[in-house]
Simulated scan of single mutants.
Amino acid sequence: MGEYKPYLAMVLIQLIYSGMILLSKAVFNEGMNSSVFIFYRQLVGTIILVPLAFIFERKSAVPLSFAISCKIFLLSFFGVALCLNVYAIALVYTSATLGAAVVSSLPVFTFFFAVLLRMEKVKVRTKLGVIKIAGLVVCLCGVATLALYKGPQVWPFHTVLSADHSTQHPHHDHSSSPKRWYLGSLLLFCAIITWSIWLVLQARFLISYPSKLKFTSLQCLLSAVQSFGIAIASERDMKEWKLGWNMRLLAVLYCGTMVTGITYYLQAWAIEKKGPLFPALWNPLNFMITIIGSMFLLNESINLGSFLGGILLLLSLYSVLWAKNKEGISDDFCLPIQAQVECENQGERSIGNP
C-alpha cells in the first residue's frame, strides 16, 4: 500500500486545488481584492502549520542557519507570495477554466528547468524519451488551444443560482474584454513559470534541509508577511479587509487550511519521494474537475476549444506517466546531486508519512 501513497496524495491535492480555483474565482467575482485574499489565506495557513511544526519537529528539525533562512525567504517570496498574487490577478481577468488549464502546462516548464539543472534525464534517441518529449509538447499545444481558441459554445447551460449571481455582480465579468483576457493569459503563464522554478528548487533544497513541516510552515509564515506588504500597497480601504459570515470567509478558511495547510506539505513530501516533475504531471486532473465545477457553480460557458484543449492535456498526462513508469523513474527517482550511498539506500530511509 505504501507505494500508492504518492498517487493518492496527488489525487487529493488536485481535488483541493480545484476547490481553491472555484472558490477564489467566486469571491473575485463578488469584488474581493485578490491581494487581500492571498494574505488572509496565508495567515490562516500559518496559524495552522506553525504549531504543528513546533509539536512534531521540535526536536528533529534541522537547525536554521543564516544561509538557509535567506533561501527560504526567497523561495517564499517568488514561489508563494509573488506567484499566488500574479495568479490571482490573472484569475480575475480570465476564468476558472483557463486558470486550471494553464496550470496543466506546469509539467512543460518544470521538465525544462529540471533538465536544465540536471535533475531530470531525457534520452532523446530512445522511444520512451521521444514519447516524454512529445507528451509535453502536446500539453503545451493543449494550453495554447485553450488560451487562443474558443470556438462555438457547447455548454450554454444556465442555472437559476448563476443567473441571479450574474445579475447582482455584472461589473466583475472581466473575461468578456479581449485585452483583459490576453493580459490574464500572459500573467497566468508568468505565474506558472515561477511555480515550476519553485518546484525544482524545492527538490534541491529539501536534500540539504529535510525538515519538511518546518520548511513548509516557515514558507507560509514568510509569505504571509510578504503578502501583507503587497495587499496593503494595493488596497488601502479597510472596508475591503472585513470578513463576514459569507463566501469570502469560507474561501479564506478553505484555502488557508486545505491548500496552504495541507497541500503544501503533501507536495513537499511527494517531491522528496518522486522528484519535482511528479506533482506537476497530475495537474490535468485538476483541469477536468474544475471545468465541470465551473459549468454548474460559476455559470462559465464551455466552448469547443476547452474540450479540445482538455483532451490534449489528458493525452499528454498519460503519455508522460506511461513513459516514466516504463523507464522506472517514477518509482525509483533519485536526484543525481545526491550522494551515491543515499541513492542506494533510498528505499530504506524513513522519510515520513503525509
Rank of each mutant, 00 (worst) to 15 (best):
F228R: 02
S223M: 02
R204Y: 13
S227F: 00
L213W: 04
S208V: 12
W245C: 12
Q219C: 14
I207V: 14
R236F: 10
G244V: 11
L243H: 09
G229N: 09
L201K: 02
I230L: 10
I230N: 05
Q219S: 07
A203V: 12
K214Q: 15
L221V: 10
P210L: 11
V225N: 00
F215M: 10
K239T: 01
S217C: 08
S234I: 00
L206C: 04
P210C: 06
V200D: 05
A231I: 15
S211G: 02
L218E: 12
A203C: 09
Q219V: 05
Y209W: 11
A231G: 08
F215A: 11
L221M: 13
S211L: 01
S217F: 11
W245S: 08
G229D: 05
I230F: 08
S223Q: 02
I207R: 11
D237P: 09
K212I: 12
N246T: 09
V225K: 00
S211D: 02
K239E: 06
R204Q: 12
A224H: 04
M238P: 07
L221K: 05
L206S: 14
I232K: 12
C220R: 00
L201E: 04
S208M: 07
L222F: 06
E235Q: 15
E240W: 02
K242M: 11
F228T: 00
Q219E: 12
L221I: 11
I230Y: 06
L206V: 14
S234C: 09
Y209S: 07
Y209C: 13
Q219Y: 03
S217I: 09
E235S: 03
A224Y: 05
E240D: 14
I207M: 13
P210N: 13
Y209D: 14
W245K: 14
Y209R: 12
S211H: 01
V200L: 09
A203R: 04
F228I: 00
Y209H: 13
I207L: 13
K214S: 15
A203H: 07
M238G: 02
S211M: 01
K212F: 04
S234T: 11
M238N: 03
V225W: 00
M238F: 04
S234G: 02
I207C: 07
L213V: 08
P210A: 06
P210R: 07
A231P: 14
I230R: 01
A203K: 04
F215Y: 12
F228M: 00
F205I: 08
S234H: 03
L222Y: 01
Q202F: 00
G229P: 01
S211Y: 01
Q219F: 01
D237E: 09
E240L: 09
V225A: 03
A233N: 08
A231S: 14
I230A: 13
S208W: 07
G229F: 06
V200K: 05
S223G: 10
A231T: 08
W241D: 15
E235Y: 02
S234N: 08
R236G: 13
V200R: 03
I207H: 13
S208D: 15
S223N: 02
L243E: 12
W241Q: 04
V225E: 00
L222R: 01
E240T: 03
W245L: 15
M238A: 11
G229E: 03
R236T: 14
S227L: 02
F215T: 08
Q202K: 08
M238S: 14
N246A: 12
